[in-house]
Computed example of a mutant assay.
Amino acid sequence: MIKFLDLHKLNKPFEAQFLSKTAAFLDKGWYILGDEVKQFEQSFATFSQSKHCIGVGNGLDALVLILKAYIELGKLKKGDEILVPANTYIASVLAILQADLLPVFVEPTIETYNIDPNLIEEKITSKTKAVLVVHLYGQLAEMDKINAICDSHNILIIEDAAQAHGLTFIGNHTRAFSFYPGKNLGALGDSGAITTNDDTLAEVLFSLRNYGSNKKYHNDFIGINSRLDELQAAFLNIKLPHLYTENETRKRIAKRYLSEIKNKKIELPICNNFNEHVFHLFVIRTENRDDLQEYLNSNGIETVIHYPIPPHKQKALQDYNHLNLPITEKIHDEVLSLPISSVLQEAEITHIIATLNSY
């Protein structure tokens, strides 16, 4: 069976370094916010071309903390509307709700699966204070258009870059990252980060992630406990120098898929610029998705559905179940993610392509 993502094989080359770092971690006896976290924050800030990186517990917390920091600074207030792509993973929406803000769903384009800039403006009201842009599957959203719209309406842009490690971003925005094990830069457990060039915002974020405190027992804000784990930071420090190679390998596989998969029943993703996609996922569409998935599985190919149920149809979001979002619903009914990572062998890629072509 060709696994969708073989994490054991992906992390195997780093195993000796992981063990060495773990031994050093145990010997040092400093378990929280130590040198490994500081090193990763510095390295990832440099890698992301940002002034500041704030390591946090996970990608959801990263988004929540950004929104709460903007509330503390008076740039947002409870009850403000935040535009968000309708077909994102539910975490993007949960963050808005957990910060006592209101999500407003905007349909994506069927070609890129990212938020449709042409639909943003018609959703803007006097209550709209930010757009949460998601670079879904690792592809840069149409930021030139989005920047122009948001600048003209004086509203914030926040970027959910949980699937977009290594993109060259456009604009001076604050971004949330997840290092969930399956990401292009994956830890061995939950972890996340925020990058920003805003000094004041960074100061508030460093405090909010640590009980609202920048000085022990002095609490300036109602914060939370969401600090990047020291051991996970150590693992990320080992893997970060290899991220560029991982992304380039994914692009190479994607180019094979795009040029060699030729089946009229299968819709391939659109990528006009490989500098604007890191292919966290390679997502195809077909009207008979479940049938295709079963067919691939019977031929030894594991696939995953990202995501079978759109946020506005989830039981947890019953207040939004009435919404009619046909493009989003079509996407969620038809998408199927193919294996893509640096541990795929050429013969496996060839088998995946041939099997799809014979469907």
Rank of each mutant, 00 (worst) to 15 (best):
S337R: 10
R289W: 06
H322E: 06
V335P: 05
S207Y: 05
F177I: 03
Q98N: 15
Y70H: 14
S126N: 14
I261R: 09
E267D: 14
R227M: 12
E72S: 07
R227F: 07
L185V: 02
D144H: 11
S298M: 11
T46C: 04
Y320P: 04
L140Y: 04
A16C: 10
R227G: 05
K145C: 04
L228P: 11
H312T: 02
I115A: 04
K12C: 09
D100V: 00
P103I: 02
F279K: 05
E230T: 10
K251R: 15
I284V: 13
L26F: 13
Y70T: 04
V304T: 14
N321S: 07
L258D: 13
H312Y: 01
N214Y: 07
H322K: 05
N11Q: 04
V278W: 00
K9G: 07
K77S: 12
L67M: 06
D35C: 11
K38W: 05
T125I: 01
A130I: 00
Q139T: 13
D199R: 06
N172V: 04
K3V: 05
I270G: 00
Q98P: 09
K264Q: 15
L97V: 13
E111F: 10
A62V: 09
P13H: 07
V204Y: 09
L228Q: 13
T88Q: 01
K12L: 12
E81G: 07
T109R: 14
H135R: 11
K28N: 13
C271V: 14
T128A: 08
L26V: 11
F177H: 04
A23I: 15
K313Y: 00
C150Y: 08
S337A: 15
D290L: 08
N219S: 14
H52G: 02
L323W: 02
I284Y: 09
A162E: 14
E329G: 00
K68Y: 07
W30K: 15
A141P: 02
Y217V: 12
I149T: 09
K75V: 10
K216M: 15
P108D: 09
T355Q: 07
R175H: 07
D144C: 05
E260A: 01
G34M: 06
C150G: 00
G182Q: 13
L65D: 12
N321E: 01
